[in-house]
């Protein structure tokens, strides 16, 4: 195992729900992220999947310091990024960057592509002396597969895929060590999506980057990730290698999620077991007690309502009543369920 570059511990982000016109009082908390811990290793891609409202985008915002964390720590190269101020925070910006989802709103329409990609150098003038900037911008455009001649154009003259490349070039400008990709391909068409995913994989190799890759599309996440965390209602419910999660999921939510993904093979129609969850995701303002998935879980028992299942390796902390397929190494990964078990053939 290589060393972790980013260690997140018990990260919590609550947004207050306020009411009242003159005297605004807090009437509740949206528990967007509620105790998330993970390690990101050097050169690795950690996928984070979950449905809308599970807190995965909030996680990205908090890690980027775009929103303050309510509590918890995130250690990057020995310092807690939530406690950084001033110059130290600016320095951190050079090391951690973000690629945003929407290629249509993530680029300032009034700036040329050259200005957009060059802005990081203006904000961090120490990175590149003034005379070098133009050359650097052209290099960056070249690296992401755009013609350097495009530097004088405006974003609206580009397609969605090309715009996403511009956003990637901007994130790459300061040579970060970690890039947080917040749904980078979900707004793109299938054929363009593949081009951008290949580019991201390519850049990871060339610049030895580490990615936190956030997406709702399970196939996309699997394609790029070494390890995967599954989020539900602000919590990480299962975490493991790409193979453990996709081939040997043990959390019922992961199983349901995987089985819901339509498989592009009509010959499998009716062949595979599909777990249909009923109802919608509960409100993050008042999430269910105990296990948050219990309201939609077919295995829920009394215990699930009273005790929160921890996300632990079953090897280190045996859980009462848990059944494990004997000796299957695929199962031995953290799963926040009181009754984790593999289900045969969830994925075709």
């Amino acid at each position: 195992m290589s060393e972790p570059i980013l260690q997140v511990r018990d990260l919590v982000k609550h947004f207050p729900v306020k009411r009242g016109v003159l005297f605004r009082r807090t009437i509740g908390q949206v528990k967007a992220v509620d105790g998330v811990s993970f390690d990101l290793n050097k050169g690795e891609t950690l996928g984070v999947v979950g449905e809308s409202g599970c807190g995965k985008s909030t996680l990205a915002q908090v890690l980027m310091r775009l929103e303050p964390a309510t509590s918890g720590t995130a250690m990057f190269e020995g310092q807690d990024i939530f406690s950084l101020r001033g110059a130290a925070l600016r320095k951190l910006r050079r090391d951690i960057q973000i690629v945003l989802q929407d290629p249509y709103t993530s680029l300032n329409p009034r700036m040329t592509v050259g200005d957009i990609v060059g802005e990081p150098f203006e904000i961090h003038p120490e990175v590149a002396p003034k005379g070098d900037r133009q050359a650097k911008v052209r290099e960056l455009l070249d690296v992401v597969g755009l013609s350097p001649e495009h530097a004088n154009r405006y974003p609206h003259q580009f397609s969605g895929g090309q715009r996403q490349r511009i956003g990637i070039a901007r994130a790459l400008a300061l040579r970060p060590k970690v890039i947080i990709c917040d749904e980078p391909v979900s707004a793109l068409d299938v054929s363009i999506q593949a081009q951008v995913m290949n580019l991201l994989a390519e850049l990871r190799r060339e610049f030895s980057l580490s990615y936190v890759f956030i997406a709702h599309d399970l196939s996309v996440v699997r394609h790029l990730s070494d390890r995967v965390g599954v989020m539900y209602l602000g919590r990480m419910v299962e975490m493991g290698t790409e193979q453990q999660i996709y081939e040997h999921p043990t959390h019922p939510y992961t199983q349901a999620l995987l089985s819901s993904v339509p498989v592009p093979d009509p010959s499998l129609r009716g062949q595979r077991e599909i777990i249909r969850l009923t109802g919608d995701v509960p409100s993050p303002v008042s999430p269910p007690s105990g296990c948050r998935f219990r309201t939609r879980c077919w295995k829920a028992r009394d215990l699930c309502a009273t005790e929160t299942p921890p996300l632990v390796d079953p090897g280190t902390s045996p859980v009462e009543g848990a059944t494990w397929p004997g000796g299957d190494e695929g199962a031995a990964h953290p799963s926040a369920c009181h009754f984790p078990e593999e289900k045969p053939k969830v994925v075709a």
Partner: peptide
């Protein structure tokens, strides 16, 4: 054919996607 090839699949972890 190209459309089908360029799609990431849930049941396999491809190295490079074929693109159009």
């Amino acid at each position: 054919r190209a459309l089908m090839d360029s799609m990431p699949r849930l049941d396999q972890r491809g190295q490079e996607l074929n693109t159009i």
